[in-house]
Design a binder for these strands. Structure first.
Length: 494
RNA sequence: GGCGACAUAGCCAAGUGGUAAGGCAGGGGUCUGCAAAACCCCCAUCCCCAGUUCGAAUCUGGGUGUCGCCUCCA
């Protein structure tokens, strides 16, 4: 079984055949740091993170390039709005993205080039287009002549004539064709500029990706990714620019697009008021839970985010982890032999156009079944069987980007809910007053209350112990009794 | 208006010709001082209509609905 991927270029699921055996070159359109990264960004980059993890697990040497478009109209607009230099805007929002990427466990791209570091290449690229007669200069910039590229519209399946018909009244009278788009924008007042053969200015959108693709991956490479909303015009324009310059087709063998995230059944946007800033979100919720939630949905489908779905995902993942912990303790010191660690069924799901939903379902079922089976066996057999399952599950979870050790803690409670409020403290304090310390930290305080409750239980004073449990619950603390003692935890939403 | 995607149980969601994975929620039971956890059992015929086929959630045609793109967007 080998990887098959849906290819936007051909509108079909096709076997992935790399240009160079054993290698995979991947370019993904990254951030334009002009505003807060949002939950939709997370879905897109998580998708390609998974693709890379799977490719690597299958033995491919992956070169993953994810660019940063750090100069753009919106960045300039934002700097005017905030009254700060455009470089500050970039630093702020890019920093925010990087914080989120770390939190989400996104693998570092092998290269993350920035448009402003590629100016020479970009300018050269534009010049090549002019030399080839595919671009022309006007008083305000340099434009790509769509007419020079007959297959324009192929990737996004647009009809050029219909596009022209629908085009709004051309503002730029100098444009030869309303569809022509800017490669280089000549300087306007209060805008950052770079010197060029056409005078000071800056690149248009699209050109930076064409240049970076060519620079880092060559005129043709394996996979070009991005979110579905980039198919037109961004990727269409990239194709036109690149193929015009290189004369090679296709620019990328596979075009892979991640479905857009919706919130409450609607597109996420600032104007609709359902914009979910990623950093805020990750400060309040488990990164593993959102990752798991996205994995439960096919990457190409539109995904509708709801708090209920997140909650369900967090619980589902927690259950999986819990089963795995049980298996781990059964396995004890027993180690699985390395060659036993393969998961063909799981791999087959991912090979099938990244069927993460099926893969996760298989993992859930397998871990659960194996746990139940192991429990039936003799101690010796049990350890061996459990160790093998644990090793396999660990492998799957690593590919999914959900390693147990890193994420388990974050699932039981969100960071913001880990502490008692003043009133909760006061209430619990009152229950253990007379015991001395009023400088107890939260954990110590809770443990005192739990201890008191256990004392009541020991003396069969159940009415009192239940009252204490209720008090703890009011403070967001859940207690669980077992033969080995009483445990407690915050019941913060994940 | 043009192009496209999607429509499976209360919710999320796999499954592309042979009688519906998984998760969450829910119901019943075992266990427990109670509760939690755990364990056992139960819970859909796949938007509608008409076709093709021995057989369709899966193919074809026609509807209906939701969403997206066509302007900046991950």
């Amino acid at each position: 079984m080998a990887l098959r991927l849906y290819n936007t270029r051909t509108r079909a699921v096709e076997p992935f055949v790399p240009i160079e055996r054993g290698k995979a070159s991947v370019y993904v359109c990254g951030m334009t740091p002009s505003f807060h990264p949002h939950l939709g960004h997370a879905r897109t980059f998580l998708t390609f993170d998974l693709l890379c993890r799977h490719l690597r697990a299958q033995g491919y040497a992956v070169t993953y390039v994810q660019n940063v478009t750090d100069i753009d109209d919106r960045i300039i607009d934002r700097s005017h709005i905030e009254g700060v230099p455009w470089t500050d805007v970039v630093a702020r929002y890019l920093g925010e993205y990087e914080w989120c990427a770390t939190r989400l466990g996104l693998a570092q791209p092998d290269v993350s080039p920035r448009a402003t570091d590629e100016m020479h290449g970009i300018i050269a690229f534009v010049q090549e287009l002019i030399d080839k007669g595919a671009a022309y200069e006007t008083t305000d910039g340099v434009y790509f002549a769509v007419e020079s590229f007959p297959s324009y519209g192929q990737l996004s399946r647009r009809n050029i004539d219909e596009l022209r018909a629908g085009e709004r009244i051309a503002v730029r009278e100098e444009k030869r064709d309303p569809l022509d788009f800017a490669l280089w924008k000549k300087a306007k007042p209060k805008e950052p500029t770079w010197p060029s053969p056409w005078g000071p200015g800056r690149p248009g959108w699209h050109i930076e990706c064409s240049e970076m693709c060519r620079h880092y991956l060559g005129g043709q490479f394996d996979i070009h990714g991005g979110a579905a909303d980039l198919v037109f015009p961004h990727h269409e324009n990239e194709v036109a620019q690149t193929e015009k310059v290189t004369g090679l087709h296709p620019m990328a063998n596979f075009w892979v697009h991640a479905g857009l995230l919706q919130v409450d059944g609607q597109k996420m946007s600032k104007s609709l008021g359902n914009f979910i800033p990623l950093k805020t979100f990750l400060e309040q919720h488990s990164a593993a839970a959102i990752r798991y939630l996205f994995l439960q949905t096919g990457y190409r489908k539109p995904s509708n985010f709801t708090p209920a779905a997140l909650e369900a995902a967090a619980k589902g993942l927690r259950g999986l982890y819990s089963d795995l912990e049980s298996l781990r303790s059964m396995a004890s010191q027993h180690a699985a032999s390395a060659d036993a660690v393969n998961t063909p069924e799981f791999d087959a799901y991912l090979d099938d156009d990244l069927n993460t939903s099926g893969a996760v379902g298989w993992l859930q079922k397998t871990v659960r079944d194996k746990r139940l089976q192991a429990a039936q066996r003799s101690a010796a057999e049990q350890a061996a069987a459990a160790a093998e399952t644990v090793a396999k599950a660990d492998r799957c979870l690593a590919i999914l980007g959900l390693p147990l050790t890193e994420h388990a803690a974050g699932l039981t409670a969100a960071p913001g809910t880990m502490a008692l409020t003043e009133s909760q403290r006061a209430a619990l304090q009152a229950l253990v007053d007379g015991s001395g310390g009023f400088e107890l930290d939260d954990a110590k305080l809770i443990e005192r209350v739990v201890a008191r409750r256990n004392a009541e239980r020991a003396s069969k004073n159940f009415a009192e112990s239940d009252k204490l449990r209720a008090e703890l619950l009011k403070a967001g603390v859940v207690v669980r009794d077992s033969t080995s003692g009483t445990e407690w935890s915050f019941n913060g939403s994940s």
